[in-house]
Amino acid sequence: MSTDDHIIEIVPCSQNSISHIIGPGGETIQRLQAETNTRIEIIAGPKVSITGTKQEEVSAAKEKIEAIIEHQANPDYEGEEGRTLRHQATEFASARTLKMKEADAAFAANDKQKGHDLLQEAKRLGEEMRQSNADAGRAIIAFNNHENGDSVLDLHGLRAEEAVDAVKLRLNHLAAVNSSKSSSSSVASVDVICGAGLHTKAGHAVALMPAVEKYLRENNFVFVKRGVATLVVNLIEDIANRSGSGDVEPATSGSTIEASPAVVEAPVAQSVASSPAVNVANEAKPATAVAPPSASPTPAGQKTKDSTNSCCAVM
């Protein structure tokens, strides 16, 4: 379609894909407009209207928009490396369960030595499983955040404990940056994207948001919930309170950051405004549900309890 000197393309989209097209604070849609020299608007339908003066620029914008819509419809929150490591962890878990059953049979037959050996093998497989899951968590964090700066942390694809560890690490890093008198790159807030559970498999609870909220409350961080998917942590108010109490030492990696006890959770924030061309509220990507950790092997000489380990975060 063209009007005068302008070319217009209309791309149908789902309601759920709108927040991905807009991005945090309108960041994605503004970047797309700058990269393609076009004007991009969300219109009734919902649809995406792309306006430009050159066909190649409008086509480039359309291709990028369609890629976002496709990714949202069929999201990949793990990446090839993370997916492979999760699969390895699942295989280790299955092998461990088998060894524990064999150990049960050995103890029942009064073959204590064999039972002990099988439990040792189950223990080794459990350690391999945990290591694969830890490696998978790191790979998934890198995959989902390779284009994000310090102010955005996407937790999709993680287990609850992995998500909390990732939040700790990011906040520890930024606490050190913001408390450094020589730093000129302070970060005012962090968007922690937990997701809305739109791609969660039936029967699994969405565990990321409650786990992260619990950690932030227990450590007195100032934060607000934006929409159903994102927690915005206020770092400037946190460092001000820490400075006022004399607690300004940079936190070490992996430790708990504690703010002043006077800090309380702020009221729920309204949706962040997007670019001037867009009047749709900004939300974050859908969440993953997280499988519970499995039990450790039973000590030698005792009846083992068969357990099924679900190693993968659920999409």
Rank of each mutant, 00 (worst) to 15 (best):
V290T: 15
E57N: 14
L231M: 09
F221G: 00
K112F: 09
A229H: 01
P12V: 11
M1G: 11
F143T: 00
C312F: 06
L85Y: 06
R242D: 02
S59D: 15
E102M: 08
Q120V: 02
S310E: 03
Q15V: 15
I50F: 03
A287M: 03
T53M: 07
S94I: 01
K62V: 10
H87C: 00
L198F: 08
P299T: 04
S151C: 11
Q72D: 09
K101R: 14
M129N: 11
I239S: 10
L216A: 06
V314G: 01
I141F: 00
V248T: 14
A300M: 08
T256S: 14
P267N: 11
E27K: 15
V268E: 13
K62H: 12
R226I: 02
V272E: 10
L208H: 05
I8Q: 04
K54Q: 15
N178V: 01
T252I: 14
G25K: 07
T51Y: 08
N148K: 12
Q33P: 10
T200F: 04
Q33N: 14
I29S: 02
E66Q: 12
A93H: 00
K54E: 14
I10F: 08
H204D: 05
N145A: 04
V152T: 04
V224H: 04
I69D: 06
V164R: 02
C311V: 03
A281W: 03
A103F: 04
I22M: 07
D117I: 10
A207H: 02
N282C: 14
P299Q: 02
H6Y: 12
E80W: 05
E218K: 15
E78S: 05
D104F: 06
S49D: 04
K99H: 13
E9N: 13
E237M: 01
A207Y: 04
N309R: 13
R83F: 06
I40V: 12
T288Q: 12
G26C: 02
I7M: 06
E27Q: 15
G197H: 02
V268D: 11
N110I: 13
T53L: 12
D238H: 05
V264A: 12
G254K: 14
V58K: 11
G25D: 03
E218F: 01
F143E: 00
S179H: 00
E66V: 11
G115N: 08
A300W: 03
I65D: 05
L85D: 04
R124M: 06
N309F: 04
V192C: 08
E213S: 11
V233Y: 02
D247F: 02
N133M: 10
I43C: 10
G115E: 04
A105C: 00
E162F: 04
Y215E: 07
S182P: 00
S245C: 08
E161I: 01
S271Q: 13
E91A: 04
E121R: 11
K181L: 00
C13W: 05
L198Q: 13
D5S: 15
D5G: 15
T90N: 05
F223N: 00
E78M: 12
D4Q: 15
A44M: 10
P276W: 03
E35M: 09
A259R: 09
L98S: 12
V280C: 06
V167W: 06
A139I: 01
E63I: 09
G195K: 06
